[in-house]
C-alpha cells in the first residue's frame, strides 16, 4: 500500500526534531484528519541552511514531512516557494489516493514558515 520510499522516510525520518532560535517556525493542522506538522528552519546566506520537522499523524504525513525537509534544504526561500506537490509526491514514490492530503499538509506548513520570513523581510 505504501511505497518503499514512504516506508523508508517513516522508519528513518530525515531532519526530525526542532531547531532552537529558528528564523521561521510554523505548525499546521489538517482540520479533516487532525494530523499536525511543525517545521522550524534557519537561513544562512539567503538559503535554508537547516530545517527540522515534527509530526503527529499517519505514515504518509510523516513521510511527507521528512521528504519536504530534504527538498527545501539548501534552497532559497523563493526557490522553496516553487516546490510543487508533484515533486514531493515523486520524492516519496507516490501516495495512495486517500493519503494525498499528506503532501498538501507538508507544502502548506512549508508555505506558512516561508510566510514568516516574508513578514520579517
Amino acid at each position: 500500500m505504501y511505497s518503499p520510499q514512504v516506508l523508508d522516510h517513516f522508519e528513518h525520518p530525515r531532519n526530525a526534531g526542532v531547531l532552537e532560535n529558528p528564523d521561521a517556525a510554523a505548525q499546521v493542522e489538517n482540520p479533516a484528519c487532525g494530523d499536525v506538522l511543525k517545521l522550524t528552519l534557519k537561513l544562512s546566506f539567503g538559503q535554508i541552511s537547516e530545517i527540522r520537522f515534527q509530526v503527529k499523524g499517519c505514515v504518509a504525513s510523516m513521510a511527507c514531512g521528512s521528504a519536504v525537509t530534504e527538498l527545501a534544504l539548501g534552497k532559497s526561500p523563493a526557490q522553496a516557494r516553487t516546490l510543487r506537490k508533484e515533486a514531493l509526491l515523486a520524492a516519496v514514490g507516490g501516495l495512495p489516493p486517500a493519503s494525498q492530503h499528506a503532501a498538501q499538509l507538508a507544502l502548506d506548513t512549508l508555505d506558512a514558515a516561508l510566510d514568516q520570513l516574508h513578514l520579517r523581510g
Binding site: 505504501y2 517513516f10 489538517n30 484528519c33 499517519c58 486517500a98
Partner: peptide, 21 residues
C-alpha cells in the same frame, strides 16, 4: 504500520478516507 514493519500485525479502529480520518 510501525508494528507491521517489526513483524506484529494489529488493527487500528480508524481508516483514512480521502484525507478525513
Amino acid at each position: 504500520i510501525a508494528l507491521d514493519l517489526k513483524g506484529v500485525a494489529v488493527s487500528g479502529g480508524s481508516a483514512c478516507h480521502s484525507g478525513s480520518t
